[in-house]
Design a protein around this nucleic acid. Structure first.
Length: 427
DNA sequence: TCTGGGGTCCTAGGACCC
DNA sequence: TCTGGGGTCCTAGGACCC
């Protein structure tokens, strides 16, 4: 059996943990630049139709009318809370796949002696007791079915206490007949549309299709889902995270930019971020990709978007030479006269640093690794971007994110710890 | 005025090899 | 007149996830 543990409205729940006055109140969390709603807790969802990814400016009134508290996203904080949850899960099984920031699969084969429902409840309770975060637990024979069980656990949380186990054929059929096809994990908008056209409306209908049809129109990916829904495991627990194939970052500017020199600075800054990740996994990149585009939602602005991938003479993880390469790439795609909204960089062709092939015509730079090591240690010790290349400029305010409502980083900064208020003693 | 960011996997088709 | 057969590697694009 496999269990899927998934935190409820994770970001919103994190924001509530250290703020008792918000318990039971509607809370939403906004994307970068406070642009869209990316998480809403149960109270916020119940209040009103707040569609996920709805631009904030369209529902601003609705939010304030209903006293919904909105937070800018605070990823440092969420990442650390996630770590706590995952650590607790290790107490329940040695085989765990951390699937995303807020959910994990754990393999229960040979582990549970108790009733699965009792075990699931214990997982839920311990996580809540240690972290204050509510979770749902679904247990079934395959990962896709565990997802289904988890969905049921959350949907009928009042009756089921947020845990559900699919352990009989009857329960499986009943669950699949209930689940709409577009809600099946791995079936997105496009496939759902095509399936509905041929009369497939529930997960159950889907399991009755011929494997040949599924293979033909949905590739082997669809076929795996089909098998898993039918109770045949096809997706294993991926315990060790695979090394990343690409590392990238891209962020919208706080306001549109025309000036190449400002875009260059943002680009250089993003390179510093991804190069740090690259070094942390002891790898080097062979290619670098840079892209740039205007605001596609704007009707009045002229639109332009371009992207370029260049091959580096030698695979590297040196921030300084990566910045130089990225700037060269940027010059090739930048066009004056447009209002740009976003620049992004990707490091590709990632290989372990000990496999780097030298280049006869580009002699190795001396002491680069040592320099980067000093960068990383200083920034680790004294905080993000304490030391950086001058190419990142000093005008960050011009392009950086807007985050007006970010809460304290309760768990990672001494100066932002939660304060417990005590009554003043009268003299 | 204001619309997120970071990923994975699969396939088809082109370019190339002997 | 007749123009093969068996491969690999790479990339763009599409679909999906949180």
């Amino acid at each position: 059996m496999i269990a899927l543990i998934d935190c409820n409205s994770f970001y919103a729940s994190c924001e509530q943990v250290f703020r008792p006055h918000l318990w039971g109140k509607p809370v939403v969390v906004l994307s970068n630049n406070d642009g869209c709603v990316i998480a809403a807790n149960r109270e916020a969802k119940a209040l009103t139709e707040i569609p996920m990814f709805e631009p904030v400016f369209k529902i601003k009134e609705q939010l304030s009318k209903n006293n919904v508290t909105a937070f800018s996203s605070n990823y440092t904080f969420y990442g650390e809370m996630s770590q706590r949850v995952m650590n607790i899960l290790h107490q329940f099984s040695p085989h765990i796949e951390v699937y995303s920031i807020d959910e994990s699969f754990i393999d229960l084969t040979g582990i549970i002696s108790a009733e699965p429902t009792v075990y699931a409840a214990e997982i839920r309770d311990r996580i809540f007791r240690y972290t204050g975060l509510p979770v749902g637990v679904g247990i079934a024979k395959t990962k896709v079915l565990a997802k289904v069980a988890n969905r049921i656990a959350k949907k009928f949380h009042k009756e089921l206490n947020t845990v559900y186990v699919i352990d009989t054929e009857e329960k499986r059929i009943k669950a699949l007949k209930w689940l709409k096809i577009e809600d099946v994990w791995g079936i997105g908008r496009q496939h759902a549309k095509r399936l509905q056209k041929i009369g497939v409306h529930t997960a159950y209908d889907f399991t009755k299709l011929s494997p040949g049809w599924v293979r033909r129109y949905m590739t082997v990916v669809g076929l795996r889902i089909w098998d898993e829904l039918n109770g045949r495991p096809r997706l294993g627990i991926q315990e060790l995270p695979k090394p990343k194939k690409g590392i990238g970052t891209a962020k919208s500017f706080g306001k549109p930019l025309e000036d190449l020199s400002l875009i260059e600075e943002a680009c250089a800054y993003y390179i510093s971020e991804v190069a740090e990740v690259l070094r942390a996994q002891k790898s080097c990149a062979n290619y670098i990709n840079v892209f740039l585009h205007t605001n596609r939602f704007s009707v009045k602005d002229a639109q332009y978007a371009n992207s370029i991938t260049i091959t580096l003479p030698v695979a590297t993880n040196d921030t300084l030479s990566l910045i130089v390469a990225a700037k060269k790439a940027l010059y090739q795609i930048y066009k004056p006269g447009y209002r740009f909204k976003k620049v992004g960089v990707n490091l590709l062709g990632i290989i372990p640093q000990e496999f780097v092939q030298g280049n006869l015509f580009y002699p190795e730079k001396k002491n680069v690794q040592a320099l980067m090591d000093v960068f990383d240690r200083l920034n680790y010790k004294y905080g993000k971007a304490k030391v950086y290349s001058a190419l990142c400029g000093n005008r960050k305010k011009e392009w950086q994110l807007i985050q007006e409502e970010r809460g304290p980083r309760y768990t990672t900064r001494w100066d932002e710890l939660a304060v417990v208020q005590t009554k003043k003693q009268s003299p």
